[in-house]
Design a binder for these strands. Sequence first.
DNA 1: TTGTACGCGTTATCAC
DNA 2: GTGATAACGCGTACAA
Lengths: 335, 335
Amino acid sequence: MVATIKDVAVKAGVSLGTVSKVINGDPSVSDKRRERVMATIAALGYSPNSIAQNLRTANSKTISVLLANITNPFQMALAKGIEEVAVAHSYNLTISATNEQSAKELESLAMFERNRSEGIIICSTGKTKEKICSLIEKNIPVVMVDRFVPGIPCDYVGDDFSHAIDIALQHLQALGHNRIGIIHGDMNTYHGEYRHGLVLSQMRKLGLSQDKDLHKTGPYTYEQGEQAFRELLAMSVPPTAILAVNNVLCAGAIHAANQSGVTIPDDVSLILINENNFMWDIVSPGITMVTQSPLTIGRRAANIIFERLRNKEKTAFTATLLAPTLVTRESTRSL
Amino acid sequence: MVATIKDVAVKAGVSLGTVSKVINGDPSVSDKRRERVMATIAALGYSPNSIAQNLRTANSKTISVLLANITNPFQMALAKGIEEVAVAHSYNLTISATNEQSAKELESLAMFERNRSEGIIICSTGKTKEKICSLIEKNIPVVMVDRFVPGIPCDYVGDDFSHAIDIALQHLQALGHNRIGIIHGDMNTYHGEYRHGLVLSQMRKLGLSQDKDLHKTGPYTYEQGEQAFRELLAMSVPPTAILAVNNVLCAGAIHAANQSGVTIPDDVSLILINENNFMWDIVSPGITMVTQSPLTIGRRAANIIFERLRNKEKTAFTATLLAPTLVTRESTRSL
DNA sequence: TTGTACGCGTTATCAC
DNA sequence: GTGATAACGCGTACAA
């Protein structure tokens, strides 16, 4: 059906090896023969079968990415950063999503392994530790991004979430807020719990209200953001400020505010930890945020993969934490 | 280094073929042997090399997607729809982006071909027709999405953009608007020109102002949206309403309005053609829009691929146009 | 039911 | 500079 290297060799009247050399730019081919081969390649519309190439050379020219949710802008920015670097190295990029389900994560990881992906970048649910570790033991470079999971011997790149929380809470405290409602993420993932714990300890440290009802947890959905906001505002003593840890949750909260006639920041201040992309430029009131850098995370993660591919020596694993920045807009004001 | 089927066979004391049969669920293996093989597979942490499998079975279990811009929410929704279907079929998904550069599109398509991708879904710049046609001639199922390109014999799935324009313009006309500014897309892509033409003819048909200066074209960027908006408002006789054909362009326009103290819809009405996702719920004023359905487009496109993979008979190519809907919000009002 | 042998399309190592 | 030939890891007739 489709032309093979053999077809080219026969038609060009040369040997298989010669064609292979031409394809791979080996200089030890006479110009005459090279031209002839190139011409018949074009004539036949021959395209090297990289499956066979990969089998023979024992590599796949593929790196794989496991995202949490393909439609979240934050996650896609991650992917974009990775894609840039992969393309620059002429590598394929395979993308999957967990949708926060560890079963899907396991499946995807198994797929990556069967594919002989040369590197894997994971935004994990945190519940597939053994599988990830087994991949690492097989010397596949793994980089965890965004969500830290303890006990996995690999590189990590993410935002300094602890610092981000600190910035956010201190900003609110400086404005006089003490009762701060938190719209947390999913407690079914490790990093959800982890960040929850970080927030609690920071709040304690800063002497902010310890009221447990100020903490709402749930999946990373728009609806959850709405519900959490409503519940917070319905408290007998509602918070005077709210921190949302994720873009979608925050969007839900804003929508709930608009729907229920709650004015931000007059009735309650709102601050968000997320990437500061174009969409936050056009919501009004402008949302004060502590910025994350998913694009940079993606780039760094991919670069680490390629660096480990280039230099096989096992160097110490790195943990890269990107510094967050405060962007002050109209959604936070002093009490 | 990593275990092969041979290692498993040796260690389990059976033949190569037996292991292969176990892996592929062939029933003609005695339970005793099967158990033994499974056990050593687990013990060795053996994972079938799908590169070798693919070479042998002459398929790649991969479909590839070429997006315009990985970070645009519209495009991500497309990818999401495709990913859902691919995962359901246990296929890999390879994603690339053109960033509107035909050179990059060519590279990616060549990569897909070398990978022996079993199906390709393309949101094309429109300038790689020959390459796409050559892939089709090699019997690779190709589905064009979102952006129609004429003269390519393949399936197409997209929104009914002509209808969408009609709905948008008629909505504005019904509100009494005659001078309507248009923030068009990129004239360097075929579909940019195509949609431009559609708008012009619809405006003529409806008897709207034919002033050429009402049409601003440029790349699909936030900055372009800002600039186009400013230019429109700076006209000696500015438009009373503006139509933006893309989310990012529209976001730029909104930002420019906020920056320059132009009030929507008091000073100018604004309508957008795009996916109605969560972000448009939280910008204020709410933007009236004609909705597109990228998620559905992605799903349909992927389903077409798998249907053509299942049924090799060449049936007629299909063109699926999804119906747009008007969602009225606050950004449009009568003159 | 089980094992053997061949070939998928390519690269790499040889002799020539 | 060139052309056989042996792998790469696996699936699958075919024979046993």
